[in-house]
Design a protein around this nucleic acid. Structure first.
Lengths: 167, 167
DNA sequence: TTGACATAATTAGTCAGCTAATTATAATCA
DNA sequence: TGATTATAATTAGCTGACTAATTATGTCAA
């Protein structure tokens, strides 16, 4: 993810548009601004989580587990839902298990499988993190009206539609 | 950056809101949706750049250089503008230099300094990448009206204001 | 003018992603 | 049944971030 600290001003955009006539300077500006705010938000989330000794990847695994019945899921399912590779999920689970926040349970039926369960300590950790996360997120979003949220949601949907044309 | 493939539905949000009454479910939903679209956009940009043998970090260094007079800048300046550490910038420049896209020039005045200059090959590479990037980005943004762009810009500004409350 | 501090870039070591290969097990079908 | 294929998790090795330490050089004030 780009962490642009120096978005182009109009003069720079114009300079590039001169050399590359295909450039849609307004679109470029809003695109870069979007990525910039997203990466800053992501960094802010990191800061919030680090107060509780967690990083985004590990935190999200805990959240995914809590969503499940009995707080149990397979590593492969977690990998798919978190959008990371299975190898990465193995590493995340290693770290969480080391910290005692989840445990591996061998599947008696299919011995290839290992179930991952949130431990009591993991639930306690979530009960510390989540209220802080929700409170801070609420404050962060406080300046945005209900109407703006809906508009943002619509624009996000349209952006999403356009993505295949990009990548 | 979270790469959520499985955003929470209303039932999940409600389940969490029950345990954590501070949760603003609407805010959470739009926040996660935002991060999701941003990471997908970032991934699409990766795909676009990889067709030209570049990754976001290295590509952005080339773009920053092209913005400069004579396509020259110091590593420290590039690091600040790209939002990465100086050590990371050293690594990015190593890679770009290995590919012949930039060159290091020792500063005769202050011998601690090394100037980084875009090479002809680097400019050629940019002249291949940028039209493709601009064309694809234009298509990606095609579904968003001028009015929506401006609204998005306003909301991005407000989100940005809220970030300190989060992190 | 030299000792302390500041600055620029790099190196060393860590971390969390990735892909590809490996191990173990299960399922299928000739 | 036994060989092939599919699946689940892990391991091994690579990349590009990071911080902290290092090297080299410059600046300034006693």
């Amino acid at each position: 993810m780009l962490k642009l600290k120096d978005l182009p001003d109009k003069a720079v955009l114009a300079k590039f548009a001169e050399r590359y006539p295909d450039a849609d300077t307004g679109g470029v500006a809003v695109f870069l601004h979007f990525l910039r705010v997203a990466s800053d938000l992501s960094l802010a989330l990191d800061t919030c989580l680090s107060r509780h000794g967690l990083l985004q990847g590990r935190w999200w695994v805990l959240v995914l587990l809590m969503r499940e019945e009995n707080s149990i899921a397979l590593p492969s399912t977690l990998a798919d839902k978190a959008g990371v590779s299975r190898a990465t999920m193995t590493g995340l689970i290693d770290g969480l298990e080391r910290d005692g926040l989840v445990k591996r349970i061998s599947d008696t039926g299919d011995r290839r499988k290992v179930s991952i369960q949130l431990t009591d300590a993991g639930q306690v950790r979530l009960d510390q993190v989540m209220p802080d996360y929700y409170t801070r997120l609420r404050q962060c979003m406080a300046g945005i009206s209900e109407e703006e949220r809906e508009l943002l949601s619509v624009v996000l949907g349209k952006l999403n539609v356009g993505i295949p044309a990009f990548g």
